[in-house]
């Protein structure tokens, strides 16, 4: 009986939501208030930790040298990740390059899914702050393949509910309200996700990366979670980074 009432109540709420999505959405002035928080983003501490960790490996000079790029070209180069790197014979994210660099320096690499790696990745990507995201998916066949795999991963329906990333992030449903939150436009016309991750997640009180966010999304939509750094995950990052092409990189971002 009690459950019956609960369901009735929920349905009543639900139907009110269907007409009143607006009342749950934040106003522009509310958004501006949150944007002000970017100035003193709690993730600044995590990024500072990342700077120290990269410093232990020789800092950005060592990172540039490891990639065979001159230091003044490094920001532009970072803004083009994920990239195909000949040395690894695969398309990789910044975090994987950092892992390899740690390994070659004789250190035990941080796990891809660890807060130290998230911090270091955030700092490294922040070196490209202000530079426009410039991923080149036509650079070679590997990048073309990665883009295609990324799109496939994005579009493929999986899991118990038969959902794909596209189910909630297709142009036709952008802006509709799901669980009281408007569904975001992930492209450069909207939030340009790839340019603003790693970011501070307010609901998690921690710094998260784009691939870690994909995992959270998959888990909630009941899709089997794909490991960080796997070809599909990197491909997904390639696909979404392409959508954010031309957007200025601003790390760390700030997310709900």
């Amino acid at each position: 009986m009690k459950t019956g009432i609960k369901i009735a109540l929920s349905l009543a709420l639900l139907s009110s939501l269907s007409f009143g999505g607006e009342q749950f959405a934040m106003s522009d002035s509310d958004r501006a208030m949150y944007a002000e928080m970017l100035e003193n983003n709690p993730a600044d501490i995590m990024v500072a930790n990342g700077e120290q960790l990269l410093g232990n490996l020789g800092g950005e000079a060592a990172f540039a040298k490891y990639l065979g790029v001159s230091e003044d070209k490094l920001p532009e180069y970072i803004a083009g990740f994920p990239r195909y790197i000949e040395k690894f014979k695969m398309v990789v994210g910044i975090d994987q390059v950092l892992q390899a660099m740690m390994h070659d320096a004789g250190e035990k690499p941080f796990k891809l899914k660890s807060s130290d790696m998230f911090d270091m990745l955030a700092y490294t990507k922040s070196l490209a702050n202000g530079v426009k995201s410039n991923i080149d998916i036509d650079a070679n066949q590997h990048m073309k393949d990665a883009y295609a795999l990324g799109q496939k991963t994005f579009d493929t329906k999986r899991g118990g509910r038969g959902l794909s990333c596209l189910s909630c992030h297709a142009p036709a449903v952008i802006g509709s309200v799901l669980r009281t939150q408007p569904l975001p436009d992930l492209s450069s016309k909207g939030v340009a996700v790839a340019a603003t991750w790693p970011a501070y997640r307010m609901t998690k009180s921690s710094l998260r990366t784009l691939q870690r966010r994909f995992q959270g999304c998959m888990k909630n939509a009941l899709l089997k979670v794909i490991p960080i750094g796997s070809p599909e995950m990197v491909a997904l990052e390639v696909y979404l980074t392409k959508q954010a092409e031309g957007t200025e990189i601003a790390i760390p971002g700030l997310k709900r």
């Binding site: 100035e39 003193n40 709690p42 600044d44 501490i45 995590m46 500072a48 930790n49």
Partner: peptide, 24 residues
């Protein structure tokens, strides 16, 4: 881990500056 940030970064005597103190 904590951090003190002063805004603006350049200031002179008599200026009233913003102090952000953050801690993990």
């Amino acid at each position: 881990k904590s951090l003190i940030k002063i805004k603006p970064k350049k200031y002179k005597n008599g200026d009233v500056v913003k102090i952000n103190f953050m801690v993990m």
